[in-house]
Nucleic acid binder design. Sequence first.
DNA 1: TAACTGTGTATAATGCAGATATACAGTTTA
DNA 2: TAAACTGTATATCTGCATTATACACAGTTA
Lengths: 125, 125
Amino acid sequence: MHILIDNKSGTPIYDQIYSQIKSQIISGELQENEMLPSIRGLAKDLRISFITTKRAYDELEKEGFLYTIPAKGCYVAPKNVELLREETLKKIEDHIDQILKLAASCNLSKDDIVSMILFAMEGQE
Amino acid sequence: MHILIDNKSGTPIYDQIYSQIKSQIISGELQENEMLPSIRGLAKDLRISFITTKRAYDELEKEGFLYTIPAKGCYVAPKNVELLREETLKKIEDHIDQILKLAASCNLSKDDIVSMILFAMEGQE
DNA sequence: TAACTGTGTATAATGCAGATATACAGTTTA
DNA sequence: TAAACTGTATATCTGCATTATACACAGTTA
């Protein structure tokens, strides 16, 4: 498994680990029931405390992306991932609805909104 | 002027003052160029430091809801449509940020998002 | 001049976030 | 069975941002 930690980026270490594993699970790069690296082993690789890797794993477990068998290891959860994706899509749609209402209230055109979004995207990456 | 401070609520005092005055300005309860209570007077009424009321006023001024004449007082700014428009734009930007975070969490591409938005727009009108 | 107005700088208190060490308990394996 | 691994639980340290504050200052008014 590949995890890259960027110390310069403002985002906390546990968060970087969390995000990278999460996207690897969602993308299928990590398969169902596949064993993840142990929190200690990964911590050793990354030269950080295992408490930090544990925190990342805890987050992922709380959201249902992995399950843990104490004293054995952590495993990629079976794909209710699709479900989570659906939920995320719904949330996005809700936000879009909010945006459209706000836009209507101050006479913003569709093009205006699209260009706002494109601009925000460029700023992000 | 009526301001109620709820010490039990988690929101900071300066924020409660800010919100209440702002909505009174927007609703028209406070009229254009009307003089607001002095930061010291209001602070005395509420039994807090005047620095706290000042902070609320500073926020409101920064957003253009009031203007200040040093050594005289603070006054309700003339109602500005542009101002409300700016506020709306900020809200929209917040929603966009949320969307981009959600999209990243399930590996949605930019194109996916744009087409979701275009689809929602067609559906609306 | 006394009593008011807002301003600016500096500071205390508080809480939260990030990262950690250490001691613990169960499982595997040699 | 002992060594080496797995994850767990508790307590702590540090740094930073937020909240709220005091006080000395400067202009206005009556």
